[in-house]
Design a protein around this nucleic acid. Sequence first.
DNA 1: AAGTGGTCTAGACCACCCC
DNA 2: GGGTGGTCTAGACCACTTG
Lengths: 238, 238
Amino acid sequence: MNKFKEIYADLEKKILSGEYPSNTLLPSEKQLSEMYNVSRETIRKALNLLINTGLIQKKQGKGSIVLDLNRFDFPISGLTSFKELKDSQKIDSVTKVIEIKKVAVSPTLSEKTGWPVASEAWKLVRTRTINGEPAIIDIDYLDANIVPVLPEKKVSQSLYDFLEIDLGLEISYAQKEITVENVTKEVRDLLELTLDDNHVVTVKSLVYLADTSCFEYTESIHRLDKFRFVDFARRRKV
Amino acid sequence: MNKFKEIYADLEKKILSGEYPSNTLLPSEKQLSEMYNVSRETIRKALNLLINTGLIQKKQGKGSIVLDLNRFDFPISGLTSFKELKDSQKIDSVTKVIEIKKVAVSPTLSEKTGWPVASEAWKLVRTRTINGEPAIIDIDYLDANIVPVLPEKKVSQSLYDFLEIDLGLEISYAQKEITVENVTKEVRDLLELTLDDNHVVTVKSLVYLADTSCFEYTESIHRLDKFRFVDFARRRKV
DNA sequence: AAGTGGTCTAGACCACCCC
DNA sequence: GGGTGGTCTAGACCACTTG
């Protein structure tokens, strides 16, 4: 592994374990570069990762302050970025595969993904049950050129582990949109909604590989009372 | 301004104007460093900003690919990070100040913000009307030690412009949480909800300055049919 | 004045892609 | 093999904080 990633991982571990408590300063960049026997720029790359994950905040002339991340059950552990997916994995949840089949790409889907109409895609429908109550429906469409096989056993555990570990795909970035939509009868049944619940939260994502090809379109449908999205955002000045 | 920020701004402008069209390659880092007369590491810092905003994707051995950002009306222009706030400003909207007064910090608020109980804070309630329809209620609490004055005229335009430009505050980062909550009578009236609308989307944010002090807590309450949150996320492997 | 982080450089070597 | 991005270095100068 790269030096700066190793240093990042080490510092993260020490922050989470309390060795560097929140609201205290990390050792200075100069000290860290001596401690790890690397140049200062390498230390700075590691610190930048900590900044991006919201673990520290730097102050010129002062130092690197360890942030307190317990205000909102902050989604920590470096597993962020596709947070709502990961979050649902952390809780005690059961995944059930409702449907898994190859379909022809419809014009609607083609417009979103850029895949040719009538080319092959996997359609995967799963429900996530949390503490015995159905909470989420995930509808995934995957480019069958990129994902040739899709074993039911694997996707009932973790789709992303299968894609990254078994298939070796390098998932890189996603565009996503969160809205609230009217519930359809099918969704109402799957989520066991009562009659006065007419809405669901829908998270639509387009997911891309490192080579910029779009390989997945997902709609993740959440019961209102089960939905929660937590984010850390840095102010971006232009 | 710093060299790398200037270069970032220049490249962003050229990408948005179509001078570097999507799905083409930028000049190589070596070429760019010669074009701008800077070292390669400086170019790489500028490119990192473009990566974070989702404008380009790099590929080792290949180059920097300009991404296509029109899939979801991608929230572009460097104004991201507090996106939902900005988005609502872009649309043709009217802000109305409902309430603006100093209050004593309650135990509940103190727990969220860390401000001492009974210390002074501003409470600011505003509604945002989009195309004639009430869409959002913003309830802001601001630390009165950091924000001594709060002119109604200013906050009916842009609270953040007032804080950053007039007061010179350096807003740095935020933790936020999106959930769906039951509607209260007060909210129902302000948002002019019909009787079968029982929920609203609530975005709760804790906002921090560069010196890591928390100066603002906000609840932004959205009508379900008016809510939309768009995000660009990079996969973070650890 | 001393120490901190912020920026920038010139050069090195490596991994990857493509011809 | 030549070009690309990825990592790393040693050193420089600047801006900011603190005593």
